[in-house]
Nucleic acid binder design. Structure first.
Length: 492
RNA sequence: GCCGCGUUCGUCUAGGGGUCUAGGACGCCGGCCUCUCACGCCGGUAACACGGGUUCAAAUCCCGUACGCGGUACCA
């Protein structure tokens, strides 16, 4: 047993993103591997961006991926509540402490005041002026106003925020578990708003307060947070708390190296929401496996893992620090690998469900035989429906390229002869079908391929599929003969 | 602009001073097996961003440059 406590802390401003799932996964893996706790905390401090069903989507996506949450808004826990909107008192209390100790101050500047300041100070060398140690002296805050004025404004209920007072001239250094030592000069850290004028805390305050009170030992999050970490470190210090271990994960980039923004990704045909992968029929375990390897490696040449395997192989110090590009082809490969490891009877059940949903009328025994033939050559479970049509219905068309390439002058006659032979011999095994076919080609002194190709085309309508004789054996002599006669008549 | 983080095959990566004429995986190409094939097997293609240093020796350490990404909100 260890005391490792990690959290995944999404904000319910949208559905769970693929990058979010990876962050959750790394947290989960560390928790499981160390016997620690995996906590879900909903960071809903931005009321303007709140999306009603986002939390449900996040929960659903984590459950689909198999990441069981130990503590969270839906399962409870000892250090709840697990939604920040329900913890306001805590933030207010610590904000007051910070004011009292002088680590934070009140600021009364309106959004217009801020715009004016930025407009005034903006220059080519400094396109985005900050509210910081250099500028706060010119603003309306408890540092520039007299105590009486401040009290008056406060008493009058004047809208205001609370800002962190960042002292210049220090270097803030911390050790990141994936990047080693990182340091920032405090002069370039702005006086971050801690409490908004609506009374809600910003991420920065809430995150630090909650991580402390929830006993979080490792903060594992995306690299987009690296730049704000000095503010968090300063907050921990000001509050007299120890900071947890920080670990900033490399960002997931689009297949072309740019940002994996929703727009860019859609343009490139790559889904960004976990839900989309689920709907597209990906194996959850394959997505998890792929995501785990996107930025981390086990240090040996293993690649295919189930969740349990990942738990034991994972380690934070084998997480890379460079951004990684998302590759759908590799995901597809992982999907195929995981599909092959599913027990045949389980996959058969799934195939049955998929086929039924697609309106195919069939039975379990027959589907089991189809699955046996298809399992090791598909990359998506859905292929069990989309690539198996001829197992359930006679082909209504024949692949034109296949006709051109494989259907010769003597094909109709050969195929008819095979149909006759099948009806006479009533073969059962794949071998029986093969013997019957070779009898014909041998006695006519033509290559087996002369008949094999037209038979596949006539029976399935396409030029590829599982082993021909295995396929015929599943279909049975009656169906085969019927289809062959029809093909002969249709194609001449 | 400034700050931070990065940079090994197209992609994910191993490697962290000599064992590197740089290994694996996906993709791609070729072959095998075969009657076909989306499986499998074998083989091939392909990379240390650039420039300086340190060292007997650098993909590996240091500095600089370039490029990429992130941050620079009363968003997270």
């Amino acid at each position: 047993m260890s005391n490792v406590r990690v959290r995944f802390a999404p904000s319910p401003t949208g559905y769970l993103h693929i990058g979010g799932l990876r962050t959750a996964l790394y947290n989960y893996l560390l928790a499981r591997q160390t016997g620690g706790a995996f906590i879900l905390r909903i960071e809903d401090t931005d009321r303007s961006r709140f999306v009603e069903d986002a939390e449900a989507d996040i929960l659903g996506a984590l459950a689909w991926a198999g990441l069981e949450v130990d503590e969270g808004p839906h399962v409870g826990g000892d250090v709840g509540p697990y939604r920040q909107s329900e913890r306001s008192d805590l933030y207010a209390k610590h904000a007051a402490d910070l004011i009292k100790s002088g680590a934070a101050y009140h600021a009364f500047d309106t959004p217009e005041d801020l715009d004016a300041m930025r407009e005034r100070l903006k220059s080519p060398e400094n396109p985005t002026p900050r509210y910081d140690c250099h500028t706060r002296g010119d603003m309306r805050n408890s540092l520039t106003l007299s105590p009486d004025e401040v009290q008056q404004l406060l008493d009058a209920g004047t809208p205001h925020v609370i800002r962190l007072k960042v002292e210049p001239g220090q270097t803030v250094t911390f050790t990141d578990a994936v990047r080693d030592e990182v340091s920032f000069a405090s002069d370039v850290v702005d006086d971050q708003i801690l409490v908004k004028s609506d009374g809600m805390p910003t991420y920065h305050l809430a995150n630090v307060v909650d991580d402390h009170h929830m006993g979080i030992t490792h903060v594992i999050r995306g690299e987009e947070w690296l730049s704000s970490t000095p503010k968090h470190i300063l907050l921990y210090r000001a509050l007299g708390w120890d900071a947890p271990t920080m670990a900033h994960l490399p960002l997931i980039l689009s297949p072309t190296g740019g940002k994996l923004s929703k727009r860019a990704a859609e343009r490139q045909g790559i889904p960004v929401l976990v839900k989309q992968y689920q709907d597209a029929g990906y194996e959850a375990e394959a997505l998890v496996n792929y995501l785990a390897l996107l930025g981390w490696n086990p240090g040996d040449e293993r690649e295919v893992f189930d969740l349990e395997g990942l738990c034991s192989a994972f380690s934070l110090d084998r997480v890379g620090s460079a951004g990684v590009q998302f590759d759908m082809d590799k995901l597809a490969w992982f999907n195929g690998q995981h599909l092959r490891s599913i027990p045949a009877d389980v996959l058969t059940d799934r195939a049955l469900g998929l086929l039924k949903a697609a309106g195919v009328d069939t039975d379990a025994e027959y589907v089991a035989r189809v699955v046996e033939l298809m399992q090791d050559r598909i990359s998506m479970a859905d292929d069990l429906v989309s690539a198996t049509g001829y197992f359930f219905e006679d082909p209504v068309a024949y692949d034109p390229t296949g006709i051109k390439k494989r259907w010769k002058d003597d094909s109709a006659e050969l195929v008819m002869a095979y149909a006759d032979a099948l009806e006479a011999a009533l073969p059962a095994s794949a071998e029986d079908y093969e013997v019957a076919l070779r009898d014909i080609t041998t006695s006519r002194e033509v290559g087996a391929g002369r008949l094999i190709h037209p038979v596949r085309l006539g029976v399935s309508g396409v030029t590829f599929g599982p082993g021909l004789f295995e396929m015929l054996a599943v279909l049975g002599p009656d169906v085969c003969a019927r289809r062959l006669r029809k093909a002969a008549a249709t194609l001449g």
